[in-house]
Each structure stands twice: as structure tokens, then as C-alpha cells.
């Protein structure tokens, strides 16, 4: 299997590095020097060199984070970081329907 670090990828727009947190599985994003559960804290890469550097740091922290990878984002008009596809939207915001509520 190719390790994610050896994967070649093209960066055609803004990307972030994301993973799940080992202790509880929640979605986290790589920041300039650590991790955050909020996408707005994510370090955005515009080139594959920067993305690869972020990914390398993320992988180095494999006790804290699982399965780091590069995911597309969009930057909205108000400069907000928004997930770039449906899967990432769901990862960030949860299932697209109301969850059952227990009485």
C-alpha cells in the first residue's frame, strides 16, 4: 500500500488537512501548529508543497489523529472556510437529517 505521504496529489484550489481524533473520533483539522475541531481554525494550503508539509506534520502526530488526508475547501465571500464537497460537509456538520431524540 502506498502511504498517504507518497501519494501524488494536485492541488487545484484551497485545501486543508483533516483527520479524526483518536480519543473520541471527532473530526479535526490541522492548524499551523496543532489541531482544532473547528474548520475555521484550519491552515489552508493553496499549493501541493504546503499541503504536503501540513500532511507530514499531521502524520507525525499519529497518536493523536487517525487517517489524516487532504480535503478540498472553499473560501466564501465573507472569507469563511467551507467544506469543498458533500462528504466533507457531512463530516463537518453531521448527518443531513434530524437525529432521533430520546425522551
Amino acid at each position: 500500500m502506498t502511504s498517504p505521504l507518497q501519494q501524488k496529489f494536485k492541488v487545484n484550489g484551497p485545501v486543508v488537512v483533516t483527520a479524526n481524533r483518536t480519543t473520541d473520533g471527532i473530526v479535526i483539522y490541522r492548524t499551523a501548529n496543532g489541531w482544532s475541531a473547528k474548520i475555521e481554525d484550519a491552515a489552508v494550503a493553496m499549493t501541493s508543497t504546503v499541503a504536503l508539509a501540513l500532511l507530514k506534520d499531521a502524520h507525525a502526530d499519529s497518536v493523536y489523529a487517525i487517517g489524516s488526508y487532504v480535503a478540498p475547501v472553499e473560501i466564501s465571500e465573507s472569507k469563511e472556510i467551507v467544506p469543498g464537497n458533500l462528504r466533507e460537509k457531512i463530516r463537518q456538520a453531521g448527518p443531513t437529517f434530524e437525529l432521533p431524540v430520546s425522551g
Binding site: D24, G25, I26, S62, I66, R91
Partner: peptide, 27 residues
């Protein structure tokens, strides 16, 4: 696993043997 003695690659088959998957949002 939490102490870093097992990598995720090593831990994954072990957690799977106990019905623990990693989904999009959580385990």
C-alpha cells in the same frame, strides 16, 4: 493505542475484532 504503543494500523484489526469502526464523525 492511546499511549502510542500500538499504531493505528496495528490497532485497527484489534478494534474491528470488537466491533469498533471509525465512521465519518466518530467511532
Amino acid at each position: 493505542r492511546l499511549a502510542g504503543e500500538l499504531t493505528e494500523d496495528e490497532f485497527k484489526p484489534l478494534r474491528l475484532m470488537n466491533g469498533v469502526y471509525l465512521q465519518l464523525h466518530a467511532y
